[in-house]
Simulated assay, not measured.
Amino acid sequence: MDARALAALAANPGCRRRAILDGAGVDKAALAGALGAPSAFGQSQFAFMRGNAFEARVKADGGAELLRLVHRTVDPGAEPPLRAQVPDLAAVGPEGRAARTALALREATLSVEGTGPGTGAWTLLDHPMLALDVAGSPAFLEPDAVVVHPDGGWTVVEIKSFPMLDGSADPAKVGAAARQAAVYVLALEDVAARLDPAPRVRHQVLLVCPKDFSNLPTASAVDVRKQRAVTARQLTRLTRIEEVADALPEGVCFSPELPPEELTAAVDSVPAAYAPECLAACELAFHCRRGSRSAGAVTALGRSVRAELGGLTTVEEVLAAAHGEAGDPDDPAVAALRRAARLRAEALAAAAPAGDTAREVARCP
């Protein structure tokens, strides 16, 4: 699991389907194609190359421009980053890289004499490796960068290729970046908790994007305290992957090589919690949407609609309640539906011609 997958999983913790597929390392894009519901989720090759080129520009010259943005945006009271350390984080395997990152963070935070934090220079960790326990399984995460300030504090840096126009960016994309960064903050806090004294992990992350329509970097500080709290709470509520696996039918397999009917039955044997927000976060969204629509589930209309409908879980139940054919009239959701149906009928009747046509329109569901 990477930070993007964890952020999506934390945003929809009730989806056991995504939990088991991510935990098993299943290629969901290939799986969606084999199911006949390929998704356009993910970056195009052009966007991927443009993002890599922009990140390389931001980190050029030992990260001088990136550190300048951190100093100006997040910590203007600190000494200017005239000199900076960029430790080598190379190691064998993700476990080795995570251990090397933890050591580099400790060395950057504490002084050479060991008298405590606050005496070092600026330090830039380029693509460090962090570990986070998720539902009993380790997840290795790789943020774009982590900066250690002269006072010993740590800041997560997210570099994105979407533009900031007149100082603001697409709120949906900024929200997704904030949720992803919140996962990195949680992982950094785990590292910080093992140090004595524990350094401060800043809850303001630096979001670096192209300025307007140029390739020049600009930055904004994003407060991720809310996203961090929500993600931490949702991750603790995630069902352990072993429990999800134990509930699967014997011999179930998610290989894209299986016949379509057998593969569909295997995937549908794991409960999903589809919502329209999944279209921007999961490769299986089109398959889950198709199943949700065929079952008439109101979740296909969005979580806010589902919350307003209370115990009514299918479109048929909603229509029956609105027409007075089912439902408890004392239920606030049922009462609101019937009132809405009456208002709709009155509006259609007022707009239609007089006579039989008006009566027919008024009876339309």
Score class of each variant (00 low, 15 high):
residue 338 R to M: 00
residue 221 A to W: 03
residue 114 G to E: 02
residue 208 V to K: 08
residue 67 L to W: 02
residue 101 T to S: 10
residue 8 A to Y: 06
residue 48 F to Q: 15
residue 36 G to P: 05
residue 310 G to A: 04
residue 303 R to E: 14
residue 260 P to M: 09
residue 333 A to T: 08
residue 2 D to T: 13
residue 145 A to R: 02
residue 245 A to H: 05
residue 207 L to I: 05
residue 21 L to Q: 11
residue 79 E to H: 11
residue 79 E to Y: 09
residue 322 A to H: 13
residue 160 K to E: 11
residue 187 A to C: 00
residue 78 A to S: 13
residue 360 E to A: 11
residue 273 A to D: 14
residue 183 V to N: 05
residue 16 R to I: 05
residue 199 P to C: 00
residue 177 A to G: 10
residue 259 P to G: 07
residue 352 A to H: 07
residue 122 W to Q: 10
residue 179 R to L: 03
residue 360 E to K: 13
residue 182 A to S: 14
residue 2 D to W: 04
residue 278 C to D: 05
residue 20 I to W: 01
residue 80 P to S: 02
residue 336 A to D: 10
residue 325 E to L: 15
residue 44 S to M: 01
residue 33 G to L: 07
residue 135 A to S: 12
residue 290 R to M: 10
residue 221 A to L: 01
residue 254 F to L: 11
residue 270 V to R: 01
residue 140 F to M: 02
residue 205 V to K: 09
residue 279 L to R: 15
residue 216 L to T: 15
residue 279 L to I: 11
residue 214 S to W: 08
residue 274 Y to L: 01
residue 172 A to H: 07
residue 97 R to L: 02
residue 28 K to L: 12
residue 226 K to D: 15
residue 92 V to A: 14
residue 87 P to I: 03
residue 228 R to Q: 15
residue 235 L to N: 03
residue 195 L to D: 09
residue 280 A to Q: 14
residue 356 D to Y: 01
residue 144 D to A: 08
residue 78 A to L: 04
residue 171 P to W: 02
residue 62 G to H: 05
residue 132 L to F: 09
residue 235 L to V: 10
residue 162 F to G: 10
residue 346 E to M: 12
residue 244 V to C: 09
residue 81 P to F: 00
residue 36 G to S: 08
residue 267 V to Y: 03
residue 176 A to K: 05
residue 268 D to L: 09
residue 183 V to P: 00
residue 133 D to A: 13
residue 281 A to K: 13
residue 331 D to W: 02
residue 36 G to F: 05
residue 316 E to H: 14
residue 314 T to H: 04
residue 223 D to H: 05
residue 175 G to W: 06
residue 289 R to V: 05
residue 291 G to F: 04
residue 163 P to D: 01
residue 93 G to V: 04
residue 24 A to P: 02
residue 7 A to N: 11
residue 220 S to R: 15
residue 22 D to Q: 15
residue 104 A to I: 11
residue 95 E to T: 13
residue 265 A to P: 10
residue 354 A to V: 13
residue 125 L to G: 09
residue 42 G to V: 05
residue 52 N to T: 14
residue 295 A to M: 09
residue 185 V to K: 11
residue 99 A to D: 12
